[in-house]
Every structure is written in structure tokens, then in C-alpha cells.
Computed example of a mutant assay.
Amino acid sequence: MLNLPELSSRYLNYCQCQKNLNAKTLKAYSIDISQFILFMSNTDGMLGKVNLSEYFASLHQACKPKTVKRKIASIKAFCAWMEYEEIIEQNPFNKLNVKFREPHLLPRTMSLDVIELFLKTAYQELSDSTSSAYMHNTSLRNVAVLELLFSTGIRVSELCSLKPENINLINKTILIYGKGSKERIIQIGNEEVLSALINYKAAYQEQIQDTGYLFINRLGCPLSEQSVRFMIRRLAEKAGIPAHITPHMFRHSFATLLLEEDVDIRYIQQLLGHSSITTTQIYTHVSTRKQKDILALKHPRNRVVLR
């Protein structure tokens, strides 16, 4: 019988050392495989079609479709590794149909008016913070974070992992390490965004040098994703924005608003760091304002004269 806990440890070590997967992916794999091993401990231990089918059925009852898809992918990769290492003769997934229909969820976006209100609130907070050096520096950082989220469409995880050497304020470029260790370079095209980054970097120069990260929290440590989420929620409340705003909504809005400005979707794909155009195409379903403009201004019915 397979010693799944030991094999799991070997597999995760392989993912870390040979595949060079990042810490978040390794953590997700570890959780997913541990849950699978726990399920298998209450079965006959056979890594076959019956047990896998029952496990996947239990996932569908307990988790959202997107989570189920990820957990199945984790187990599938684990089994593929065991087959490659000749630990098992045949991958049990070869006899399984694990495809299922996911609900089509459109990304949540913000209008340009809401983003403008957000930025105005952050800049007003910066303007009001001159009496306290700590508050002033914190506000400088918050402005720089918000400007970068919207101007580049960067993921919050990518933003928090930025190093000072990743940003070149002279050439106005940012080097971003995305999912799967993919790199992309994005230009900073707006002078106010550039100014916000210059002012922030000047205020935090020592802390940045000490930590080796671009964005710093109040304790002098790298800024966490949770801190960015909390800051955005707080500013949304202060701005009187009733919707629940997340960092990823800046990314969705970045893509959607560019699409509405007739930017080619393949350029947007590159800016977002999507490996497949299919991922980017979801934004074509969101841009209702653009659809309205097309039908109102460019539909051939407008050239039909009945009198």
C-alpha cells in the first residue's frame, strides 16, 4: 500500500527544488494533498477510480466550483508525478472524467468615477497629514500603492513582493514577476503616478534598503496583502463608497477601462501577464458601456432611411 504522507513530502520537495514553485502554490498543494490523504485514511487506501470519484463528490458538496477545480488539479499533478517516478503503474486519472461546468462569474469592476473618488480621498488624506511625520509617510505609501494598482493592473501579491531593483524611476518601468515565475515589464506612463512613487521611495529609503522590499508596513517589515486589503476597505468607507472593494477590482477595472478605450485585447493580455488570451477574454463580456456606444453610434440601422 502507498505511503501517501511520505510520498507527499517527496512530491512537495520536488515542486520546490526542481519546479521552483512559489511559496503560495506550495502551500495550496500541501493543503490540498493533506486533505486528500485524510480522506484516503478512512478508505481501503487504494488509489483508484472508486476512491477518487468519492473524494471528488465530497469536494463538490463542501466547496465552491473554483476551489474544487484547484483541488482536483493538485491531486492530478500529484498522481502524474507518482506515475512518472514509477511509484504507480498507471495514473488513475486516465480512467476518470473530472470535467465539470463552472458558473460563469463576471469580474467585479469599478467605474472611473469611483476610482477617481478613491484616489481623491487618498490624496486628501495625504494633504491633511502634514502635522504627523508617521501619518504623512503612511499616506505617501497608500497613495503609491493605489496608483500602482490602477496604473499597472498589478496583482496585490505581485505588488507586495516587489523589490526596489524591480522599479526604475528614470526609465519609468516596473519589472513584475507574475504567476509561474513569468516576467513582464510595464511602463509608468502617468507623471502623477511617477511622482507618487518617487515621493514614497524617498520617504522610505532606509526601510526599503533594510528589508529589501519596495513597500513597507508600520513595523518596518514588508507590506502584507492583508494590510493592502484593510487600507482599501478603510479608504472606501471614508470615501462613502458602499461596495466591497478589493485590490483585484483595480486589476479588473484597469483591463475593462482599457478595453473601452479600444486597446487591443492582446496588449491587455500582455499587461496583465495572462499566458492565454482565453483568460483575458472574460473582460469582453464586462464592457457594457462600450457595447452601448457601438450599437448606438455604429450600428448600420442608423444609416437606414425610411422617408
Rank of each mutant, 00 (worst) to 15 (best):
R108P: 01
R108Y: 05
T109Y: 06
S111W: 05
S111P: 05
S111Q: 11
L112V: 15
D113V: 05
D113I: 08
V114H: 08
I115L: 15
E116Q: 10
L117F: 04
L119A: 01
L119F: 11
K120I: 07
K120F: 09
K120M: 14
T121M: 07
T121S: 14
T121L: 04
A122F: 00
A122E: 01
Y123P: 00
Y123N: 10
Y123R: 11
Y123E: 14
Q124N: 14
E125S: 12
E125Y: 03
L126M: 09
L126A: 01
S129I: 06
S129E: 15
S129N: 09
S131Y: 09
S131Q: 06
S131K: 05
S131R: 05
A133D: 15
A133K: 14
A133E: 15
A133T: 13
Y134M: 11
Y134G: 06
Y134T: 11
M135W: 14
M135R: 13
H136K: 14
H136N: 12
N137A: 10
T138D: 11
T138C: 09
T138A: 14
L140Q: 07
R141N: 08
R141I: 01
R141F: 03
N142S: 13
N142H: 07
N142R: 05
N142T: 04
A144S: 14
A144P: 02
A144W: 00
A144F: 04
V145W: 06
V145P: 05
L146H: 03
L146D: 02
L146K: 02
L148G: 02
L148Q: 06
L148W: 02
L148F: 11
L149N: 01
S151W: 04
S151C: 13
G153F: 01
G153P: 00
G153Q: 03
R155S: 02
V156S: 04
V156N: 00
S157G: 13
E158F: 03
E158N: 07
E158Y: 02
L159N: 00
L159A: 03
L159Y: 02
C160E: 04
S161W: 01
L162Q: 02
L162A: 03
K163L: 11
K163C: 10
P164M: 09
P164G: 04
E165S: 14
E165L: 13
N166S: 14
N166A: 10
N166M: 05
I167S: 07
N168E: 12
N168I: 12
L169Q: 12
L169S: 13
L169K: 10
I170G: 12
N171H: 10
N171R: 06
N171V: 04
K172N: 13
K172H: 13
T173E: 15
T173H: 11
I174R: 06
I174Q: 05
I174C: 12
I174P: 00
L175R: 13
L175P: 01
L175Y: 09
L175S: 10
I176M: 09
I176E: 02
I176N: 05
Y177D: 04
G178F: 00
K179Q: 11
G180R: 10
G180Y: 03
S181Q: 12
E183K: 12
E183F: 15
E183G: 06
I186S: 04
I186V: 15
